[in-house]
């Protein structure tokens, strides 16, 4: 996908880690003193994409795919081994102060809240560090307090908060300076369903109110479905897919799910002539049907059987993603 005015633009970005390796045991430990063996790990392999202003893009991939490494490069914590990146026109790893003041990185397990002091005091500290004008600060804190329901938490020391409460406060602390670009690495990890939903709603509202650009990773497909029209999928450091979330199914799951409710049950009749039977219970059957045959199969079912109800669906996004990851990364480098 190309963007008119990209806020994030990366080209052929790569990161290679050099890791030392040695076998177990004392002898190997001594050997490694003299002759250190190293191995290169290609965490990110020549990926390119651009994200336009105000977009929310889901950045997907299994563990170890290179998502966090990419986000860290974009946030200026890591130097790429090769390639180019520009965010808001800055080269992230130069860590220009003006850049740092305009972006934020939220990582699920990282804490920027000071452990021993009330949350509001950390906020105050950020106000000073980011040089947020007093009136803007008040307004933003009020807004965030309302959106994330922080009021009862602000006066408590961080260490007295539950994980979910802390995460909400972390997100608020990361947004006080009203960043234009948000890098969110698993922002809902470890949270219960209600809290996940609240954070999602909040992110949508924040994006609408401020027009901020968001690049987020999540293992929860509900996050991705609720937030991202567009997704970028990487696997083994390579870019597999970049496009609409809805297109992901077309591309990687050439099947549809057909659910049929039968009026008198199907008797003993085998139904696998119509497609792969996924679930079967008396009076109800779920079939997997190749996409191109969907129309003809449903036609046949309707004429052959006494159908009470019939629905055709794309497979759940989880299944599609699983399908994507189970395929070899090399299969579609052109993605």
């Amino acid at each position: 996908m190309t963007q008119e005015n990209p806020v994030i633009e990366i080209e052929e970005l790569s990161k290679v880690y050099t890791v030392t390796e040695r076998e177990a045991g004392l002898a190997a430990a001594f050997r490694s003193l003299v002759n250190r063996k190293t191995r290169d790990v290609r965490a990110v392999d020549k990926i390119s994409f651009a994200v336009g202003e105000g977009e929310i893009v889901g950045f997907l991939g299994p563990n170890g795919a290179g998502k966090t490494t990419t986000l860290k490069m974009l946030a200026g914590l890591l130097h790429p081994t090769d390639g180019r990146a520009a965010v808001l026109g800055f080269r992230p790893w130069e860590r220009n102060r003006d850049y740092l003041r305009r972006m934020t990185l939220v990582m699920g397990q990282r804490n920027q809240l000071v452990w021993d002091i009330p949350v509001i005091d950390t906020f105050e500290l950020n106000r000073a560090v980011y040089r947020i004008p007093e009136t803007d600060y008040r307004r933003t804190v009020d807004e965030l307090t309302e959106l994330l329901e922080l009021a009862p938490l602000l006066r408590k020391p961080t260490r007295n908060l539950s994980l979910g409460e802390r995460m909400k406060c972390e997100i608020a602390a990361a947004l006080l300076h009203r960043p234009w670009v948000l890098f969110l690495d698993e922002p809902t990890i470890g949270l219960d369903v209600t809290m996940q939903r609240r954070i999602r709603q909040f992110l949508v509202e924040y994006n609408q109110r401020t027009g901020a650009t968001v690049l987020l990773t999540s293992h929860y497909m509900a996050d991705v479905e609720a937030l991202c029209k567009r997704v970028i999928v990487i696997h083994h450091g390579k870019l597999l897919y970049d496009g609409e979330l809805s297109g992901l199914a077309d591309r990687f799951a050439p099947f549809k799910t057909v659910e049929v409710e039968l009026q008198n049950g199907a008797g003993g009749r085998p139904l696998d002539e119509y497609g792969e039977v996924l679930v079967r219970s008396p009076g109800r059957v779920t079939l997997r049907v190749p996409k191109i045959e969907t129309a003809s199969v449903t036609g046949r079912i309707l004429t052959d059987l006494e159908v009470a109800d019939l629905t055709v669906q794309d497979p759940p996004i989880e299944d599609v993603i699983e399908q994507v990851f189970s395929q070899e990364a090399t299969e579609s480098e052109e993605g």
């Binding site: 200026g76 860590r95 740092l100 934020t104 990282r110 920027q112 560090v129 980011y130």
Partner: peptide, 12 residues
């Protein structure tokens, strides 16, 4: 412990 990362993200 990764605290250094959050310090690096700050514009100071």
């Amino acid at each position: 412990m990764g605290q250094f990362s959050s310090q690096l993200l700050k514009p100071i």
